[in-house]
């Protein structure tokens, strides 16, 4: 969903730049509560893993593909504030080094994937966790639910931005329908990857999954081991 330069006009790109700067600024302060000697390296790994995951485009039919956005995944693993920073770093590396996503569109991409993706993905994760039975197996399911909703949510916000400041004269409803339709399908892929990765990490190191706190059985034993490592 990387928006290139030119899709949105300058005022809209400046506005999303301000939103992105405010979001990242807040995340920089709040992430501190989620990061310590043990979780900071894990957060770096999560950012690197999301970069790798975003390279794997999976086909979704009719000559279209999608790839992981990673907002819900990162939020469940390392907490929402740190997740915003993880996705922002990924987008920065992609924009600066890979020519993926425009530079004037960096604020737009951070807004869509690092802010909307994380806020919606994590919000739905918490809601789903509250509804599902209280056992470890519910965590990957709730993470998948968050992931599923986060993708069409980001696509909807792009469509809204396009309606406000798109440089091409296209009916906004047409863009919204197509964007949400395709990204619902891509969201299924996002949900599957997120659910599988979260359950794999829970299987080996439940204490490193921030969203699984209070859910994983062998938590205290593994935590004392983790602190000593």
């Amino acid at each position: 969903m990387h928006v290139p330069d030119g899709f949105l006009d300058a005022p809209t790109s400046i506005a999303t730049g301000v939103v992105a700067a405010a979001g990242v600024g807040l995340a920089l302060r709040k992430a501190r509560t989620e990061l310590d000697d043990r979780t900071a390296p894990m957060a770096g790994l999560v950012a690197a893993f999301v970069f790798a995951g975003q390279m794997i485009n999976f086909p979704v039919g009719a000559g279209t593909s999608g790839h992981l956005l990673g907002g819900a995944l990162a939020a469940v693993l390392v907490g929402p504030w740190t997740a915003m920073l993880c996705i922002s770093v990924v987008l920065l590396v992609q924009g600066l080094f890979m020519a993926d996503g425009g530079l004037t569109a960096l604020g737009t991409n951070i807004t869509l994937m690092a802010i909307v993706g994380v806020v919606v993905g994590y919000g739905v994760f918490r809601l789903a966790l509250g509804v599902l039975p209280r056992r470890p197996g519910s965590v990957p399911l709730a993470a998948a639910a968050g992931a599923l909703v986060s993708v069409p949510a980001a696509a909807s916000v792009f469509s809204l931005l396009f309606a406000i400041g798109g440089t091409a004269d296209i009916a906004p409803a047409k863009v919204l329908t197509a964007m949400v339709g395709w990204h619902l399908v891509i969201g299924i892929g996002e949900a599957v990857i997120t659910g599988l990765v979260v359950s794999a990490v829970i299987a080996s190191r439940p204490d490193l999954v921030r969203g699984a706190r209070g859910y994983a059985g062998r938590r205290s034993h593994l935590q004392s081991e983790g602190v000593g490592a």
């Binding site: 999976f58 593909s65 999608g66 790839h67 792009f158 197509a178 395709w182």
Partner: peptide, 11 residues
């Protein structure tokens, strides 16, 4: 990985 355009490019 698939080399098809992603959702946004396709739309």
């Amino acid at each position: 990985a698939s080399s098809h355009p992603d959702g946004l490019e396709y739309v």
